[in-house]
Design a protein around this nucleic acid. Structure first.
Lengths: 143, 143
DNA sequence: TTATCTGCAAAGAATTTGCGGGAGG
DNA sequence: CCTCCCGCAAATTCTTTGCAGATAA
């Protein structure tokens, strides 16, 4: 799943932010996550690397990364926000949530991407961002 | 926008629930809402009709209506859940959020509906539910 | 009558923030 | 050094819940 390391160093440098140990660790944790962790999970994983990191810092750093468009916020309907590294536009994808197991399947569909942009244009808008979640149950014959 | 009144009476009858004054009012408020109110807004509108209704009852009733599939929960990325009456499948639609004004535009696209079901099938799932939100800014030439 | 529902207020859960000490540039 | 950042704990915001009285069926 070729996920690149989030370039937190470049971000800090370009925005005049300080490249703290905590920010490095949190960026690394999110980079390495193949799933879609919520804040508590990021906190736990970061704590395993450096147990002095606080939950408040995780929240602040995640909000920072999101505000600069480095990570993406996801909402799957449970009460908490989940995050994933933002990939390139070419790498854009969506999620199918298995209602029986909670498993999250990522997918990409070129036709869908085109259609969404078309719809926005038709409505008089330039598409800036978009989110699609499908909720499904496994087909009986596919096992 | 032909939104029918939520049939709270039929729901209560079929499920053995009590048809209370509060439930009637809350169902009516949501039926009448052309927008996508969050709980606090439903509470305010209901309070205007009967100021003895409590916020707790609004939460409980909304959760009840959602659990029976009568209304739909929406998440637009601000911290709170929003709701709208669930329409028929034929009436299915999605949302485009105008990032400059917060205005929400509803749309429907048959091709999109078909494509989503196809994608789910291809992944081995039967589509149970789905959500799509587009975020955009107005096109410059369209004014 | 009686099980369900409501209002109130308190509890919970997720997230944000004020403050004083700490560390990056 | 000096500003920005962190940890801590308290505060906010959204939502849920226990309880005792109220009400629909």
């Amino acid at each position: 799943m070729h996920v690149n390391q989030l370039d937190i160093e470049a971000l800090c440098l370009s925005k005049g932010l300080k490249l703290t140990e905590q920010r490095k660790i949190i960026a690394q944790v999110i980079s390495a996550s193949g799933d879609h962790p919520h804040v508590e999970e990021v906190y736990q994983r970061a704590s395993a690397i450096d147990n002095k990191i606080s939950l408040a810092t995780v929240y602040r750093t995640i909000n920072l990364l999101e505000s600069y468009g480095v990570i993406e916020k996801l909402e799957f309907g449970d009460g908490r926000a989940r995050y994933e590294p933002k990939r390139s536009e070419a790498d854009h994808h969506h999620h199918l949530i298995d209602l029986t197991t909670g498993k999250i399947i990522e997918f990409y569909d070129a036709e869908l991407e085109k259609l969404k942009a078309d719809i926005a244009t038709r409505l008089g808008y330039q598409l800036v961002d978009h989110r699609l979640e499908l909720f499904g149950v496994p087909l009986k014959n596919k096992n």
